[in-house]
């Protein structure tokens, strides 16, 4: 049993340590409610984020959405949604529905919506960087483009 303990520790501890060392200071407006997990970025950032804040508010009003992260550039907005646990079976349907509604509401912007957890992590990190003015305008555009590529990557 001792051997087993040692082995388990050698697997779990590095995971814990690795997951705790990647941090960026969080100055965003964050909600404490786990079912309404929304963040907002102040308007001092290099690219005005009031549009993404507005869209996040709109998406958050839906019952099945429990969390939302998003960043916008001049031409497009990238949105990651977290769907309520039991609705996750038809996660993709919710994703499409939200996208359709947003496209109707904001016809002159390119809207990309994903319910993938990966983009929730990525956009969370990107939001923090935007809030702290750690990222320049063209860097942000590049990051958004590379994330868009990752969403469309089938393999």
């Amino acid at each position: 049993m001792l051997k087993l303990n040692k082995l388990l520790y050698s697997i779990i501890f590095p995971l814990l340590i690795l997951s705790s060392c990647n941090t960026e200071e969080d100055n965003r407006f964050t909600s404490e409610d786990a079912n309404n997990d929304i963040t907002k970025i102040s308007n001092t950032s290099p690219v005005d984020q009031s549009f993404s804040n507005e869209v996040k508010d709109f998406v958050m009003k839906k019952d099945e959405v429990t969390g939302v992260r998003g960043v916008n550039t001049e031409t497009r907005i990238l949105l990651a949604i977290e769907v309520a646990h039991l609705s996750q079976f038809n996660e993709q349907d919710h994703e499409k529905k939200v996208k359709k509604e947003l496209e109707k509401k904001y016809p002159n912007k390119k809207i990309i919506v994903s319910s993938d957890q990966k983009f929730f992590f990525e956009l969370d990190e990107l939001e923090k960087q935007v809030q702290n003015n750690k990222i320049k305008r063209d860097e942000l555009t590049k990051r958004v483009e590379s994330l868009e590529k990752l969403i469309n990557d089938e393999a």
């Binding site: 697997i11 779990i12 995971l15 690795l18 997951s19 990647n22 993938d116 957890q117 990966k118 983009f119 992590f121 990752l150 969403i151 990557d153 089938e154 393999a155």
Partner: peptide
């Protein structure tokens, strides 16, 4: 649970999405 931990680890630190993790 261990599998889910590994999957989340790969998603967090590498370029894997929920689709291909």
């Amino acid at each position: 649970v261990i599998g889910q931990l590994i999957a989340t680890f790969y998603m967090y630190f590498f370029k894997f999405t929920e689709q291909n993790v």
